[in-house]
Design a binder for these strands. Structure first.
Length: 478
RNA sequence: GGUCCCAUCGUCUAGUGGUUAGGACGCUGGCCUCUCACGCCGGAGACAGGAGUUCAACUCUCCUUGGGACUACCA
C-alpha cells in the first residue's frame, strides 16, 4: 500500500449538496486529515445542461460551512489543476487520441433514439439491456457516409473480455465479468467526456491514491479499471462506503424530506452537530461515546469501521445531537449563529447589547433543539413580543390565581429589598399572605410573567425581566 | 430480467467461536418539593430462516428469504 494519501471529493454542481455527498466528503476529509494527507476538491461539471454556477457556489459554501476545508481545488489552486473538469477538456481530448491510436476505441453514430429502441427490444426479449456493438466494426467508408450525413459520433471503449478483480478497502475482493458490460461511451457526441472516462484521467493525473465514494459507484469501478488498464495507469485503492437510506430503506432522496445540507442549515442545525451525526451514521468510533468534536473524529477515524450495510437517516437523532451541541455552546458562539434566526423572529439584535442578550441566550439554549426555535423561546424576554397563550389565560382564570399575582405585585411595589432578594422574598411573602403553595403559587406568576405555562426556572426569568417589566405585565392583566 | 452489494433491538451501532448479546436515539416507569426541558435511576426491545463445520456458533461455509445499488451520450 502507499505511504502517500491523496483523496478527493468530486461532486457535480447539479443541485444542492446532499447529506449523502456531504458524508462522502466527510469520510474523505477525515481520512486525509487522519493520515496527514491531502484533500482535493474537484468539480465535475461536464454535464452542461444540468450544471449551474449557482450550484457550484452553493456547494463550496456548504462545504465551508461544515468546515471541510480542502487543500487543493477551486479558490485554492494546487499543482494538479485545473480542478474543474470543464477546464480540462484539452486533456481529455488528448487522452482520447491515445486510445484511438491504440485502437481501443471507436466512433459510434447511433442516435439516442436508436439506442433506446435497441434497449427496449432487449428488455422485451428478456435480455440484458446493453449496447451490442453495432458501430464497432464500421468500415472507413461507412463512417465517412455517416459523417457526410451530418452525424456527430460519440466514442465508445472496446470492452475486452476479462474478469476484473480488485480489492475494496471496505468490502474485500470484488469480481466482475466484462461480458456483462457493453462498449460504453467515453466521449459524448457533443465532445464532452463521459463520467467514467474523465474520473479515471483526473484521478490518475491528480495522483489520487485512494478513491473513497458511495456504494452506488461499485459497478462503475469495473469500467474504470478497464480504462486504467487501457491507459497503462496504476489504479488507486478503492473504498466504497454504504449509502444513506430513507425510512423505507431506499436511497435517501428528496421525497424523504430534508436531505440537503442547506436545508438543515436553514433549520438551525449546527455544522458541528451535522458533522458529528454524519460521522456516526454508517460508522462508529472506538470511543465509547458518540459526541466527538472534529479533532476527536479525525484522530479516531478508520475506514475499517465503516459499515457495509446502508444506514437509515434519523432526523430524530440529528436533532438530539443538535440540542446537545446548542447546550454546550457558549452564548457568544451561539449569538453569532443565531443572528439570522433572531432577525427572522423579528428581534432587532442591533438594538440590544450583548450584555443583555448573552444571559438570555444562556438560559434559553437549554430549551431549544434547533436555532430556528429561538424566536418562540426568547419572546418572553421582550415586552413588545409578550403575548398570552390560551393555556396561560386558563391558569389565570382559576380560583385565587389573580389574587396571587396581585399580592406579588403589591409586594414588589412596596418593598425596598435588594434586587437579588426580590424574587425569593416576594414568593415567601405571597405564600404567607395567600396561603397558596406549589402549583397554585407558581403557575399564576409564571403565566402573568411570561404569558406561557412552560419555560425556564421562574427565578432566572425574573432576574432577567426585572421588577419594572414584571409590574407592567401584571398591571396589563388585572 | 442481468450484474453486484448487504443482513444484531423500531433506528444507528458494539461484538470478531464460549457474553446475563453492550451502548446511543426513540418509546416508557420513577426521582429532581411550578411547568417544559436538562440530569439521574429503572423497564420493554434484536442476532431473518434452514442446513452444515465444531465440544461450542451472533461470530466460519453453503442455500433460502428479504432489502439495496447499478444497469444513460447523469455523475
Amino acid at each position: 500500500m502507499t505511504d502517500k494519501f491523496r483523496v478527493r471529493f468530486a461532486p457535480s454542481p447539479t443541485g444542492e449538496l446532499h447529506v449523502g455527498n456531504a458524508r462522502t466528503a466527510l469520510f474523505n476529509w477525515m481520512f486525509a486529515r487522519h493520515h496527514k494527507g491531502t484533500f482535493i476538491l474537484r468539480i465535475e461539471d461536464t454535464d452542461e445542461t444540468r450544471s449551474a454556477l449557482a450550484y457550484q457556489v452553493n456547494l463550496l459554501s456548504d462545504l465551508q460551512w461544515l468546515g471541510l476545508d480542502w487543500d487543493e481545488g477551486p479558490h485554492k489552486g494546487g499543482a494538479y489543476g485545473p480542478y474543474k473538469q470543464s477546464e480540462r477538456l484539452a486533456i481529455y481530448a488528448e487522452h482520447l487520441k491515445k486510445l484511438e491510436k491504440a485502437n481501443l476505441v471507436y466512433p459510434c453514430y447511433c442516435t439516442e433514439e436508436e439506442l433506446e429502441e435497441e434497449r427496449q427490444a432487449l428488455i422485451l426479449s428478456k435480455r440484458m439491456p446493453r449496447y451490442l456493438g453495432k458501430c464497432r466494426d464500421l468500415t472507413a467508408k461507412q463512417r465517412r457516409e455517416k459523417e457526410a450525413a451530418g452525424r456527430k459520433p460519440s466514442f465508445r471503449f472496446k470492452v475486452p473480455e476479462l474478469i476484473i478483480e480488485f480489492t475494496d478497502l471496505i468490502r474485500g475482493t470484488m469480481k466482475f465479468d466484462s461480458a456483462a458490460i457493453g462498449d460504453f461511451i467515453i466521449v459524448r457526441s457533443n465532445g464532452m467526456p463521459a463520467y467514467n472516462f474523465a474520473v479515471v484521467i483526473d484521478d490518475f493525473l491528480m495522483d489520487i491514491t485512494h478513491v473513497i465514494r458511495g456504494e452506488d459507484h461499485l459497478s462503475n469501478t469495473a469500467l474504470q479499471i478497464m480504462l486504467y488498464q487501457a491507459f497503462g495507469f496504476m489504479p488507486p485503492v478503492f473504498a466504497h462506503h454504504s449509502l444513506i437510506l430513507g425510512r423505507d430503506r431506499a436511497k435517501l432522496s428528496k421525497r424523504h424530506g430534508s436531505v440537503s445540507v442547506g436545508e438543515f442549515r436553514s433549520q438551525g442545525i449546527l455544522p458541528a452537530a451535522l458533522m458529528n451525526y454524519l460521522g456516526l451514521l454508517g460508522s462508529s468510533f472506538t470511543e465509547a461515546r458518540e459526541i466527538l468534536n472534529r479533532e476527536e473524529m479525525i484522530a479516531d477515524f478508520s475506514l475499517e469501521r465503516a459499515s457495509k450495510s446502508g444506514a437509515v437517516f434519523s432526523e430524530e437523532k440529528l436533532r438530539w445531537l443538535n440540542a446537545v451541541y446548542i447546550r454546550q455552546s457558549s452564548a457568544d458562539d451561539l449569538l453569532e449563529m443565531l443572528h439570522p434566526f433572531l432577525k427572522e423572529a423579528g428581534i432587532d439584535t442591533s438594538l440590544l447589547n450583548v450584555d443583555k442578550l448573552n444571559p438570555i441566550i444562556d438560559l434559553v439554549k437549554n430549551d431549544i433543539t434547533t436555532l430556528a426555535e429561538i424566536g418562540s423561546n426568547i419572546n418572553i424576554f421582550f415586552d413588545e413580543k409578550y403575548s398570552m397563550s390560551s393555556e396561560a389565560k386558563h391558569v389565570l382564570e382559576k380560583e385565587g390565581a389573580l389574587n396571587v399575582v396581585k399580592t406579588f405585585a403589591a409586594y414588589l411595589q412596596e418593598t425596598n429589598a435588594a434586587d437579588s432578594d426580590l424574587y425569593p422574598a416576594g414568593i415567601k411573602y405571597v405564600k404567607e399572605k395567600t396561603g397558596a403553595g406549589g402549583r397554585d403559587l407558581f403557575m399564576p406568576i409564571r403565566a402573568a410573567l411570561t404569558g406561557k405555562v412552560h419555560g425556564p426556572e421562574l427565578d432566572k426569568i425574573f432576574a432577567l425581566i426585572g421588577k419594572d417589566a414584571t409590574l407592567k405585565r401584571i398591571k396589563a392583566i388585572l
